[in-house]
Design a protein around this nucleic acid. Structure first.
Lengths: 238, 238
DNA sequence: CGGGGTTTTGAAAAGTATCAAGGCTTGTGG
DNA sequence: CCACAAGCCTTGATACTTTTCAAAACCCCG
């Protein structure tokens, strides 16, 4: 059961802006200020913010935790389109209904802004439209990167690319680049990369056996970043 | 060699707005009027409007012909991100450089609008930003659809989905839905769907042998639309 | 300490890519 | 008008990658 919880908790501005698994949008300046005054909703693992096809009543900004954004086929197959972490916007887009589902991958907090409020803001602030344009451009770029990864890379290249992008995200946030947290399940990663959990697992095993990474619970460590990039680029096999 | 050709040729407003292979943007209202007064550039097959990484000096609207939008990996593998036909905008996006290459798949004409002019328009017209936001939202939706197709469908489902979407595009344009033009090469289709040309060809052969389609030069005919949708949905194999 | 879910591992099967060659189209030039 | 050349498309045989099915190992939490 979802709960609304009032709290004056400021969103820490995370300085990372990776080109990749980030499919959710980065905060839009004017929006951030407005959102800071909005109520916080608390979610537990597997709570859904919304589902594909739902009316777009609100947009959200992640305060804490991580979300998995995905679409489902009638037969149950799933494509994860992105992961959203603290600072990311979820639910932007001009349509009247959500084009994907958003689910908390663990305990999480979001701020919510009614879609109507966003429209009012757009009428009043002539710059907001261009800021939203900018945010969507970045989302588009991220999905195009993912499309290339899924459409043209083999399993090892996909997994290595994924780890490398997370590592680079850390570097941008001035965190150690060699420790990569994996808050999502193998299944989430597989559905993101267009693989099966077994293939993801096997590939991680091979990378570990090659001495390129080491596995630990909840995270992996990159032992040889150059080799990882070589694998991602297809210049080295595992 | 590319040539600039002045002509007062009005862009015919094509009524189609498919959710799918359309990755290029639909014209934005205020933009259309402005573009109608811009010069027309004439291109021949394989002429490139721009390449990935080029400075974004102009944006374009297709007047005639078709364009292939794609990204390349260092090793030459290619992912086609979309096809642009008459009426579509090419090159929209907030970044300073192009994120993909655009190549004419045959003789083509475009109108070009300098990027600076677009920025000036945005400053003057407060609605333009939201219209661009809208256009990018649609592009994003199209790429997400494609991502799902490439990441989670098998070869037969991908090809059937592709043909079905082209058919539906025709229906929306009040053209016969059973005749589907294929102005692009098998290679373009393969690079769009994340397959090889051989697999695309084999799949078309199977669909033809099943009596679902018939093949002709430059187009295919859909003989059994229901069966095609079943194949696309994975409810029927070929 | 136990139990459910996740992750890893193995063996076999299926699907797609690769390599190779032949056929078809289209446009060109004799 | 026909022959030819070049590129595109199709088809076949084979190899490889990834999935599928199955089971064991691991981990976290109560």
């Amino acid at each position: 059961m979802l709960m609304i919880h009032q709290a004056a908790h400021l969103i820490e501005e995370s300085p990372l802006l990776p080109p990749y698994p980030r499919t959710a949008s980065r905060p839009v300046d004017d929006l951030s200020a407005r959102l800071a005054r909005m109520p916080v909703k608390i979610l537990v693992q597997h709570d859904q913010l919304f589902r594909e096809g739902d009316d777009k009543t609100s947009i959200y900004q992640v305060v804490e935790g991580a979300f998995v954004l995905y679409r489902l086929l009638p037969n149950g197959r799933r494509q994860v389109t992105g992961f959203a972490v603290a600072g990311d916007m979820i639910g932007l887009g001009a349509g009247a209904s959500h084009r994907c589902s958003a689910e908390a991958s663990g305990a999480a907090k979001v701020r919510m802004l009614p879609a109507l409020a966003l429209h009012r803001m757009a009428d009043e602030d002539p710059h907001l439209g261009m800021q939203l344009y900018d945010a969507m451009s970045q989302e588009l770029a991220a999905v195009q990167d993912l499309l290339m990864t899924v459409g043209r890379l083999n399993a090892a290249e996909r997994v290595a690319t994924f780890l490398d992008s997370l590592s680079q995200r850390n570097a941008r946030a001035f965190r150690p680049a060699d420790r990569v947290e994996l808050p999502m399940t193998r299944c989430d990663i597989a559905d993101f990369l267009g693989l099966t959990t077994e293939t993801v697992s096997r590939t991680l095993t091979k990378l570990a056996n090659s001495g390129i990474i080491s596995r630990h619970s909840g995270h992996i460590r990159i032992l040889n970043a150059n080799a990882l990039e070589d694998v991602a680029a297809g210049d080295q096999s595992v």
